[in-house]
């Protein structure tokens, strides 16, 4: 699959902007943490400030990873799916109230061919988006799908228009604002997830439901025996 040339120059512009944004966000996060050290008042607001800045930093980091894709700097290797999902869900659990995030492993195949860092970003992006509109439980499911392993995130936020999703899958529409009807959710996270998945020769997609959407990534299973 070839990349759009115009997109690459757009990516380098975005990368420059991302580098500029990262440090102010890191400073904002430190201020919020410092505030918490000084006083226990307004703990919820402080936690929100830390959470918002951390999610923004994560997106900036993902944008910076995009430039490394062009240079082929991410090695493909056998990756334990449970290790990735476990790490990301622990890391992101603060975004969910207790019991809102459910993880279900139905897979027999435990090792896929992927890049650990990129796969973690894809799962994190799906979950962060789901968290932004989590009015009910969010479910992460890992299952075998043909010769592949599927990681799917089911959220019950307002549905993503299919034409928007098609544009994102084609690698377009990264910087056109938040996902329609989903304030707080990010089209950017889906865009980077799509690019990372393509790099890993994984299939990324979405299934629309009456009460929300499932985003999934299907990864080729590794032929290497699992030692996990």
């Amino acid at each position: 699959m070839c990349y759009n040339g115009g997109m690459d120059s757009e990516v380098s512009d975005i990368l420059a902007a991302a580098r500029e944004l990262k440090m102010p966000l890191a400073t904002l996060r430190q201020l919020a943490l410092m505030l918490g050290e000084m006083s226990t008042d307004n703990e919820r607001i402080r936690a929100e400030m830390v959470g918002v800045s951390e999610r923004a930093i994560q997106q900036v980091n993902d944008l910076m990873r995009l430039s490394k894709l062009e240079d082929g700097l991410f090695e493909m290797e056998p990756v334990g799916v449970r290790a990735v999902c476990g790490e990301v869900t622990r890391e992101i659990a603060e975004l969910f109230n207790k019991g809102e995030l459910m993880v279900e492993y139905r897979n027999r195949t435990s090792v896929v061919t992927a890049n650990y860092e990129l796969l973690a970003s894809v799962v994190r992006g799906f979950l962060a988006n789901a968290a932004a509109s989590a009015s009910d439980k969010v479910r992460l499911t890992v299952r075998d799908a043909g010769g592949k392993v599927e990681i799917a995130v089911r959220d019950r936020g307002p549905a993503l228009p299919m034409e928007v999703w098609r544009e994102i899958r084609k690698g377009r529409g990264a910087a056109q604002g938040p996902v329609a009807m989903r304030p707080g959710a990010s089209r950017l996270a889906l865009y980077t997830a799509s690019r990372f998945s393509r790099y890993m020769h994984a299939e990324v997609g979405a299934v629309r439901h009456r009460d929300g959407t499932s985003f999934y990534v299907r990864l080729p299973r590794s032929e290497q025996r699992s030692f996990f």
Binding site: M23, A26, T27, Q30, L31, L33, M34, E37
Partner: peptide, 13 residues
């Protein structure tokens, strides 16, 4: 060179 970040580090000391 970021005085705010420097102050955050200094306070944490």
């Amino acid at each position: 060179s970021d005085p705010i970040m420097a102050e955050c580090v200094a306070r944490a000391c």
